[in-house]
Simulated assay, not measured.
Amino acid sequence: MDRQLEEKIAQFVGVTGASTRDAKRFLDKYKRVDIAIDAFYNEPVALPTRAPAPSTSKLSTLFDKYKDPDGDDISVDGTIRFCEDLSVDPEDVVLLAVAYELKSPRMGEWSRKGWVDGWKNVGVDSIPAMKTALLRLRDKLGSDPEYFKQIYNYTFEFARPPGQRSLGLDMAQGFWQILLPHGLQGGALAHTQHRSSDEEDEDVMMVTDEEGWKPEYTQWWLDFLNEKGGKGISRDTWQMFLDFLRTIDAKFEKYDVEAAWPSLIDDFVQHKTCMKPRMTSNSTRL
């Protein structure tokens, strides 16, 4: 327990710049590091001290710890060591948010500039502070619809093999399996509908009480893809599937067959609702 408390104190101090005594006081009261940090920042009069700006030199030193001995970047081996130090699984969904923040060019790779600039923007420069930052990023990814969309769309480019226009089917399914449950559980994928804005001549997305996509539907989608087969998922299908998931009603009764959905989504709805096949120009889209 003493070692756990010491690690929590180090995380708290790394993020806030507070004294060890103040860190212990807040942790004794709030127990969880993320809650204690929020409480710290909500008491500016009692604790005016704030964390110094993240250190470029400290971040560069950390980068050198993980980068390839014969290269300029961090690759897969360094990423695995980094994940071990963070106590996080390399396949944890939060690492997609980290990759986005650090502008990782592809899976398991990190450039020095992206690493330094990214962690500075996040506001941390040490492993304990990064562990706490992961708690914030995980929560934001699960609860913030716009941030989820940014990470979701970034994932396609991040995971797509160089020179390929599509994301391999197995790869796409793997990322859907970690992204969708997280967004559904946290509220980032809450059911929405288009509503006309009173102030601007455009539609806006509004959260509704209507029941929408359910967790078990994700497996329906994956099973359908396996049955249908195919080599990959296009950017258009990847991006529009997110809009479909957010707006479809639970019974698929309000699906607009005349809207410009990719044919794969049309086929999925038809498969699940026994809709009559339709022959339109949209049926050729992938």
Rank of each mutant, 00 (worst) to 15 (best):
R138Y: 09
R138P: 00
D139Q: 08
D139T: 08
D139N: 04
K140V: 05
S143K: 13
S143C: 01
S143F: 00
D144A: 10
D144I: 05
P145Y: 11
E146V: 12
Y147S: 07
F148P: 00
K149G: 01
Q150M: 12
Q150S: 13
Y152H: 04
Y152E: 01
Y152K: 00
N153Y: 15
F156G: 03
E157I: 09
E157C: 08
F158V: 03
F158S: 04
A159K: 15
A159G: 07
A159V: 12
A159R: 13
R160H: 07
R160S: 13
P161V: 06
P161D: 13
P161R: 14
Q164C: 10
Q164H: 15
R165G: 13
R165M: 11
R165C: 03
S166D: 14
L167T: 08
L167S: 06
G168F: 02
G168Q: 09
L169Q: 10
L169P: 00
L169I: 11
D170E: 14
M171Y: 00
A172S: 11
Q173T: 10
Q173F: 01
G174S: 15
F175E: 06
F175S: 01
W176Y: 14
W176S: 02
Q177V: 02
Q177M: 10
L179K: 02
L179R: 02
L180Q: 09
L180H: 08
L180G: 02
P181T: 04
P181W: 09
P181Y: 09
H182C: 04
L184I: 10
L184M: 14
Q185N: 11
Q185K: 15
G187N: 06
A188H: 04
A188P: 00
L189A: 02
H191S: 12
Q193M: 14
R195T: 13
S196N: 09
S196F: 12
S197H: 08
D198S: 14
D198V: 07
E199A: 14
E200K: 13
E200I: 03
E200G: 01
D201I: 00
D201L: 05
D201W: 09
D203P: 02
V204E: 14
M205E: 15
M205K: 13
M206Q: 14
V207R: 13
V207K: 11
T208Y: 07
T208W: 07
E210G: 07
E211Q: 11
E211N: 04
G212Y: 08
G212N: 05
W213Q: 04
K214D: 07
P215V: 04
E216R: 08
E216F: 08
Y217V: 11
Y217C: 11
Y217N: 15
T218N: 13
Q219C: 00
W220F: 09
W220V: 01
W220D: 14
W220K: 09
W220N: 10
W221V: 06
W221Y: 10
D223E: 12
D223L: 03
D223T: 11
F224M: 05
L225T: 06
N226Q: 14
E227H: 09
E227G: 11
K228R: 15
G229L: 02
G229M: 02
G230K: 03
G230M: 05
